[in-house]
């Protein structure tokens, strides 16, 4: 699926997400931060977007950005959203910080016809190197120390592939990025950001 979105922004992951959507889609962005992704998708694809965010400052930033935002905690599930009521539900670089990880992915598949999940690949060689050297990895994509990290459920591409297989989830497409560039060779070793387009089987 290609929209040939012309992007001038530096966020390659945003551009990939845009290319996985259709013009005018209804999109739910979970953990939407300041609403930047939805604003970008609104400008490029005229999507009907809603964000979900729990942090006060981010909710205020969304209001400032003119993004629809619903303040709630994703850990409580998506009970306020009907089955299959969105074309796509996005969870961008938030999966690893969720406590109810399994539940949120299943909830996303319930609410969205398709699901986009992106997360930092823990199997990235720089992470492996730091662990081999005897330390918890700290990097651009994992910028926290072990004691202050919000990331409680880190995984590798292989782990997530297995998760999908075990939960009857179809992987429609997968892209792997490092420093904004797509990686096709040995992605679980050379890729730092994993991007999945999913659907319920």
């Amino acid at each position: 699926m290609q929209n040939n979105v012309k992007y001038t922004i530096f966020r390659q992951d945003f551009a990939i997400i845009a290319n996985w959507l259709k013009f005018g889609d209804k999109v739910l962005d979970l953990g939407c931060g300041d609403g930047e992704l939805l604003k970008f998708l609104g400008a490029t694809l005229e999507i009907k977007g809603y964000g979900v965010e729990k942090d006060d400052d981010n909710v205020l930033a969304c209001v400032k950005n003119g993004t629809n935002v619903i303040q709630m905690d994703l850990e409580d599930g998506l009970s306020g959203f009907e089955n299959q009521s969105f074309n796509t539900v996005v969870l961008s670089q938030t999966l690893q910080a969720m406590h109810n990880t399994e539940r949120i992915v299943l909830e996303m598949l319930r609410v969205g016809e398709e699901v986009i999940v992106t997360f930092p690949n823990f199997g990235y060689w720089r992470n492996r190197l730091q662990i081999t050297a005897g330390r918890m990895p700290v990097s651009k994509s994992l910028p926290y120390q072990w004691f202050d990290t919000p990331n409680v459920h880190l995984c590798t591409l292989h782990d997530f592939d297995d998760f999908c297989k075990n939960h009857n989830i179809d992987i429609l497409e997968r892209k792997v990025l490092t420093e904004g560039q797509e990686v096709s060779l040995m992605p679980n070793l050379l890729g730092s950001l994993a991007m999945y387009r999913l659907k319920h089987k």
Partner: peptide
């Protein structure tokens, strides 16, 4: 949301 209204909460 069911009506796809413009809403923030």
């Amino acid at each position: 949301l069911d009506n796809e209204s413009t809403v923030s909460y």
